Computed example of a mutant assay.
Amino acid sequence: MGTLDARRQALKEEFTAARGYWSDLWTDLLDIDPDFFEAYKNFSSSPWKRKDGLEPKVRELLYVAIDTSTTHLYDPGTRIHMRNALRYGATREEVLEVMEITAMLGVQSCTVGVPILLEEMKSTGMGGPLPEAQLSERQEDLKKRFVETRGFWSEPMDGILRLSPDYFEAYLDISSVPWKSGKLEPKVKEFVYIAVDAACTHLHEPGLRIHIRNALKLGATGQEIMEIFELISVLGIHTITQSLPILTDEVGQAGK
């Protein structure tokens, strides 16, 4: 791309002013389709125009969460938003804490799978691991520790605890680390869970409901949670940032 014309230069400057950064990821789109770029600029900038919303550091940490999620793993965005978060005052420990929280997404293999397993065991006459109301002394202690550390309990956790207390204890220990030694305030930790569960690459409604409820109990407002949805709704643009360079290359090859 050569020298920008007046309109494209103005759009680049407006994007940089609204979002606080510029990346060459946007160069091809700005060059080829300034109309779509302008519409995206306005769309993605909407929550950033809010004067009483989430602080910029938290916004960037939420982008880090959805880009580092195992359902996405988008390295270009991860680098951009880590850099932005650090520039807005985030520490290395805070960024790592976001990744530690996000890394727990894998347990949803169990929170989704175990209830189905228990239902199918009952339907085939195999019953469950323990009578409905009965937990061993160790299991009761693990449940108590989970509630004390994480501040909630959910039905899928009950099934995991019943079927595999050893695994449950290991999950309790690793998922509790950010809650015991992390620096982010509890409400922000819940914002990270909300962002990961609501991202278009995951859309995990049970977890989303749990963490919205937790965030509200911790003092979050409906407007703050709505802003999380607005921020992460831009994830779909990675269709273009990943694929437009390929199109540009292929068009160039075809023209040779």
Rank of each mutant, 00 (worst) to 15 (best):
G255H: 12
T78Q: 12
D75L: 15
T3F: 03
Y74L: 03
H211L: 11
S164N: 15
K187D: 05
R7W: 07
K41W: 08
Y88H: 15
T70N: 13
D52S: 09
G113W: 09
M157P: 01
R145V: 05
S175L: 10
H211Q: 13
R162A: 14
R7D: 08
V188D: 06
D5L: 07
G20R: 11
A220D: 02
L135N: 09
L86G: 04
S23D: 13
M99V: 11
T68K: 00
S46I: 09
Q108L: 05
P131C: 07
T241P: 05
K180Q: 13
W22L: 07
T68F: 06
G151R: 10
E137R: 02
E250H: 13
K57Q: 05
D33P: 01
T91P: 08
S233E: 00
D75M: 14
P76Y: 08
V147K: 01
V147Y: 00
K41E: 08
L130N: 08
L218I: 05
I160S: 04
K122A: 14
G106H: 03
L216S: 06
P115Y: 05
M1G: 14
L203W: 02
K183A: 14
F152W: 13
I32K: 14
E148Q: 13
E185V: 12
D24T: 11
L61R: 02
L29T: 12
R19P: 00
S45K: 06
P34R: 00
T91Q: 06
P56V: 12
K187C: 13
F229I: 09
M1K: 10
S175G: 04
L25R: 12
D141A: 14
F152K: 06
I228F: 03
T241I: 06
E13P: 06
I80T: 15
E227M: 10
E132T: 12
G53V: 09
F229G: 12
R19T: 04
A195Q: 01
Q253K: 15
S233K: 03
R138H: 04
A65E: 00
Q253D: 12
D33R: 01
T16C: 09
L218F: 03
V188K: 07
E94Y: 12
E97M: 02
D35E: 15
P245S: 06
Y74Q: 01
G125D: 02
V112T: 13
L118K: 11
S45Q: 07
R87H: 10
P47L: 00
I101E: 07
P76N: 02
I32V: 15
E100K: 10
F191K: 02
C110W: 08
M157I: 01
T241S: 12
F152E: 11
G151A: 03
I80Q: 11
L247P: 03
L73A: 08
N214S: 13
Q223W: 06
T221A: 07
G127H: 07
D158F: 10
S181D: 09
D141Y: 01
V177R: 04
D35V: 11
L118A: 12
R162Y: 03
L218Q: 11
R83V: 08
L247C: 10
K122E: 15
G127N: 07
K143H: 01
M126C: 09
T70Y: 11
A65P: 00
A170Q: 02
D158P: 02
V177Q: 07
N214Q: 14
M157A: 05
E140Q: 01
S44E: 13
D33S: 04
L4A: 13
K51D: 15
T124D: 10
I101N: 04
E38W: 04
P56R: 03
A90Q: 13
A6T: 10
